[in-house]
Simulated scan of single mutants.
Amino acid sequence: MGISSRLSSARGALRAVAPSRPSDRPHWAARIEDVKNAVVGRALRRMHWEPRLQPFHGLGSGHRVRVLARVLYASPGTPADFHDQPVHDMRTMAVRGWRNFAGQVVPHRPVQVLLGDEQFTVPADRAGIVDAELEVALPPGTHQAVLWTDPGNEVTADITVVPDGTAVGLVSDIDDTVMVTWLPRPLLAFWNAFVVHQSSRQVVPGMPMLYQRLAREHPAMPVVYLSTGAWNVFPVLKRFLYRNGYPDGPLLLTDWGPTHTGFFRSGPDHKHRALAYLAEAFPGIRWILVGDDGQHDPSIYDEFARQHPDRVDTVLIRRLTEPEQLLAHGSRRPLATFPHGPGGPSTVTAPDGHGLLFALQRLGRIGRGPQEADEAGRRVA
């Protein structure tokens, strides 16, 4: 059935609403950003620019899914699916990096979502982000939600529905865990926005193989990439993961702009909220948590493990080298260590994916393949 006929026959109602604004006065930076968005938005509309949607990869269970997207202005004649191209389209992905940071968001725009046979209306937030949980019955697997702001600008967003009864899931940090850029953290936004060639970022040795082995060990395992990176770099990160053989999965990123309480959003708070969402949305899953010791991952994972001891399977921490520690936070020593005591989850540390895989094999968490143990043993030292 075509999109147009599905739209006409879809049924449903408003099932998700944006969080209400706090009663106290917003932070001055947020007020300035709101004025800027209003002024620029009016100017673009006078030039006949139109809203366009950038879809993100969503996830959910068989009865409730999370739909993610961003609403941006686009010049007249821009195809509706400009942001909705295959991840392997190298030219499209190369263009998008800087355009995503230069784009103007459309705050509070109502967005229509067609998923299955149900239609929903959800609003974008003040940063143009659509982040809505919708109650809809879907079978396990990958589905496509249809999103639009006006007839004719429909795009599709992938939705991964996790099968009921899934026992294990994987949550992975990105920067310094699966990817190394060899730049100080303050420059990562610029790097990801303007430098888009494959040679500009390096894969952490052995991490794609580790994730593939975990996926084979747990065939129904959902893979969620959790990062403090901005939604602006979603296409760049998606392309990197695809090109280097990482399992496909949703990315939970954040908006770097001002909030009602501060100039920038808190990265650790974003990760705490995302982990709490996963624990609530998938109560039967025990998570393998993967991060690095260059920032706050060990303490964040420890707090989650203490709050939800039955939701953590294993914690895997990549140990950064001294130069990487310097770039991450300005010191040669790790910023944080995993502080939990006896009775906490199994914690494995190693300098790369080969060492982590070998350690998991020694613990009996992954079957040992031919010659893998010898190779990993040389790397873990």
Rank of each mutant, 00 (worst) to 15 (best):
S75F: 11
V71Q: 06
A102G: 14
R362L: 14
G367Q: 12
D310W: 13
G103W: 13
T142K: 14
R239C: 02
G330E: 05
E133L: 15
S200C: 08
A167P: 10
Q112W: 11
D310C: 10
H270W: 03
G355R: 00
R31K: 08
Q198T: 08
F194C: 04
E280I: 00
V35M: 07
V312H: 07
H143L: 01
S61F: 05
R368A: 13
Q212S: 07
D352W: 05
A80Y: 13
V136P: 06
L316D: 03
P247T: 02
S227T: 10
W182K: 09
A69K: 03
R265Q: 07
L363I: 03
P79Q: 04
D352G: 04
P339S: 07
P184R: 00
A145V: 02
L210E: 08
Y277S: 01
R368K: 12
I3T: 13
G341A: 12
P235T: 10
L316I: 04
G245D: 07
L134C: 03
T261R: 07
G58H: 09
R311A: 15
M207S: 10
E372D: 14
Q104F: 12
Q295A: 08
A220L: 06
P205F: 02
H83R: 14
V290R: 11
V146L: 02
A230F: 08
R11W: 08
V196D: 00
V196W: 00
S227N: 07
P26W: 08
R379I: 02
T121E: 13
I317S: 09
V95G: 15
S346W: 14
M221Q: 07
Y277P: 05
I32W: 06
V146E: 02
D24Q: 06
V312L: 09
A230T: 13
G103M: 14
V113Q: 11
T254E: 10
P110I: 10
G60P: 08
E33H: 11
H340V: 14
T259K: 01
P184W: 00
T160S: 15
R52L: 14
P55M: 01
Y246K: 00
I317N: 06
N153V: 11
